[in-house]
């Protein structure tokens, strides 16, 4: 048996929940997230030779997933903008009316889906997964200052909806 391959399989299985949530952060939609997760796993298996023990496996997977999303799947979802200047500022009154009859979770989903991809992903990495600003910056390949400002805007926009 190939020990390195076994280690790779085990780490991939262990990373699935986090990668799945990351897929949701990128896509904001459950069915798209599962499609992206499937594609990410397939690409990871095809490139498993790149695996190196004692390295940041999760970061490698995050990048694989994000690149896949950017290169292929996001093209099928043109309404989702990467441009931070086009972030939607939520209107608490409109959303409250629109989702008045929905459950709390449905409202949460709606608010999260209103965030831009980069704000949602940054918030996920730091506030949900507990990554440091530097780790999030490494994963998203942006400066730490960008992470700080994205987090503030993500929280600001969501707080307006409360």
């Amino acid at each position: 048996m190939n020990i390195q391959h076994q280690n790779f399989q085990q780490q991939l299985l262990a990373a699935l929940p986090a990668i799945r949530r990351y897929c949701l952060a990128l896509t904001a939609q459950q069915h798209s997230a599962d499609d992206l997760l499937q594609a990410t796993v397939e690409r990871a298996l095809a490139r498993w030779q790149q695996y190196q023990a004692d390295t940041h496996f999760d970061r490698w997977l995050y990048r694989l997933c994000r690149n896949l999303w950017i290169d292929t799947m996001r093209r099928e979802k043109p309404s989702d903008s990467l441009d931070e200047e086009h972030d939607t500022v939520l209107s608490s009154s409109n959303l409250a009316e629109q989702y008045e009859t929905h459950t709390t979770l449905a409202r949460v989903q709606a608010h999260m889906q209103q965030l831009s991809e980069v704000l949602r992903t940054t918030l996920y990495l730091v506030a949900v997964e507990g990554h440091s600003y530097q780790e999030a910056a490494d994963i998203m390949e942006v400066p730490v200052g960008t992470i700080m400002s994205r987090l503030a805007r993500a929280r600001q926009q969501l707080s307006l909806a409360l």
Binding site: L24, T104, V108, Q109, H111, A127, V128, A154, R155, L158
Partner: peptide
């Protein structure tokens, strides 16, 4: 807002 994100994920 953080709590909302945690619920979502």
């Amino acid at each position: 807002a953080d709590e909302m994100a945690r619920q979502f994920f």
